[in-house]
Nucleic acid binder design. Sequence first.
DNA 1: GATGAATGAGAGTTCATTCAT
DNA 2: TATGAATGAACTCTCATTCAT
Lengths: 189, 189, 189, 189
Amino acid sequence: MRKKDDEKQRCIKTAVVELILKEGFQGASISKIARAAGVSPATVYIYYENKDAMLRDIYQEYAEDTFQYLLESLHPNMAGEQIIEELIRSYYSYIVENEEIFHFVEQFSTCPALQSNCGFMKGPGNLNQLLTELKRRQILNNYSNDNLYAILFSPVKTIAVKKCDSEEAAMDRLDELITIIQKALIRGY
Amino acid sequence: MRKKDDEKQRCIKTAVVELILKEGFQGASISKIARAAGVSPATVYIYYENKDAMLRDIYQEYAEDTFQYLLESLHPNMAGEQIIEELIRSYYSYIVENEEIFHFVEQFSTCPALQSNCGFMKGPGNLNQLLTELKRRQILNNYSNDNLYAILFSPVKTIAVKKCDSEEAAMDRLDELITIIQKALIRGY
Amino acid sequence: MRKKDDEKQRCIKTAVVELILKEGFQGASISKIARAAGVSPATVYIYYENKDAMLRDIYQEYAEDTFQYLLESLHPNMAGEQIIEELIRSYYSYIVENEEIFHFVEQFSTCPALQSNCGFMKGPGNLNQLLTELKRRQILNNYSNDNLYAILFSPVKTIAVKKCDSEEAAMDRLDELITIIQKALIRGY
Amino acid sequence: MRKKDDEKQRCIKTAVVELILKEGFQGASISKIARAAGVSPATVYIYYENKDAMLRDIYQEYAEDTFQYLLESLHPNMAGEQIIEELIRSYYSYIVENEEIFHFVEQFSTCPALQSNCGFMKGPGNLNQLLTELKRRQILNNYSNDNLYAILFSPVKTIAVKKCDSEEAAMDRLDELITIIQKALIRGY
DNA sequence: GATGAATGAGAGTTCATTCAT
DNA sequence: TATGAATGAACTCTCATTCAT
């Protein structure tokens, strides 16, 4: 017998994300995906139970990857402002460097009909732990985790997708945002 | 006669938004929409050129409505902190009260493939004017409009869709968020 | 709006029966059926909920027709031997003249998986009534209806599909069968 | 080594017959059959040339088995009525005890498209010989073999698949059928 | 204006079969 | 021999859209 070919599954994942950026969920049909991935439509069903499961699985993997990416950017004994800067800056660069993946994850997560069938993810829990810990260590102001999370990650998302006139202007804008958020969240700043 | 037409179109709009919340873009077919709206599939094509145009038109109307709703909440001679409070609070209540519409707009606007064909909208321009004016009047700190916009509206969006244990806790969280943002953006706060 | 076209549904029915004789259930795909019927595959779904329902509905109609055909061949005051002769002879000619329909009905009814989802049919009840009545009037021997039914209709089915050397030989064989069954079932023959 | 092969082929045969009873020809795909038989789809092709050949071969084996079973039930010097009783009774019990096989054979043999490709079978010939012999020995009435065959075997088939209220009632019905047929076919009864 | 019938195209999925091990 | 991976073709069914009334 032949062994399952991880390369094939990787191609499928890539094709899904590419196609969904280019054409939206509507245009990402199994046959287009298969063609883009260089496999037969039937092959997709060797790796995923059905289309919904495929999208869900790929979403969850990429979503977890994102959290992983963020948490890995932190070092144990960073100062509070460094932590904030690093989190925001790495999220920003993640979005810029993984535009397709980011948009796929965003589209998926803004669709309640898709989101509702998703299983457990550990990324959010880890981040919550981090935030709680930073408050305990009196690094961050004692705001609710929901608000800390919202302020740390949603504005940067907004500006990362909004194209600037120049690369330089974009950097200035990011620096400014970091400063604003550091002042807002760090204890006794 | 005029009356009846508008009624049908309203039904279609409502059906679209409902269905897309419940089933996502994938499940919102013309025939389902027509059935939910109580009209014939052919009737949809009297009011809209085709499906894409329909979604785009409905999106644009609702998106403009949202900006309109926000700007209407402001009174000419409010203090800076009141302006911020009011913008955030009304956006929050708009999301909560128009859950279906909000999700439809969000899904649409996170999909580059859809977004790209959208025409001109005046809401963003008006808001930009407002922010520029508030900076000129030295009410807001002199941050870039992108950042002001991002901090004002994206965190509230994040928390508005994240269900809280109780209504009360949600209100506390919202109050907290408003305070954080007021401190961050208002000059000399 | 257009009105439903009964002609179309008739074409579909005919095509189904033809194709199933020629290619068996396996070869009777919706697209082949549609092509043979001169309609679009989608049109089939206007007249039938799905493929299973289509086959079931068509089967039930034809099966009822058969019973109807048999019962209509009888006149009120026939003698017992005439009744038997007529039932057997008309079933025989029905099979010969409606070969396609007969084979479709037979294939369907020998498949438990299909048969199990079938609804109520009134033909069998009517025939049972007839048999019971003929026993009450002391025309037929007092055998169980199951046996009467089995002897009356299954041997003729068997010989009707078994081709003979000549038309004449087939008729002789049929006459012989009728005589055998008359002797076996008619009281005091 | 030989042993193991036969075991696999037996599993496949059993799986085919089971699946076709449960789901009909439509639902009996090679992969389902393989799964039910506990082998790989590819393995099926070691034992059978292709799907059609597989069904045909299995059908022919089982069909021949049935004839064999019937003829084996007879003893050389049975009286005419015993022969008839034994043939009918053993066919009846065969059907009841081998429900799946019986239905598979029936479905197959009522489908002209399948039947047409079948090769030579010796069972029917043997039975014809027997009937001819019984007529020559003046045990059976001098009816055509087709009619003798039809009356002997098709009514019992009909009642064997028609469930009765009780086991006892079924036996009574069978006894009655035997009597009717004995009277109808045995010379000078 | 409004409709349900009608459709070709294409959706997701499974098929019988072959390949590589 | 025996396998699970792989596939192009074909499956059932729904789609967005148009037609005829």
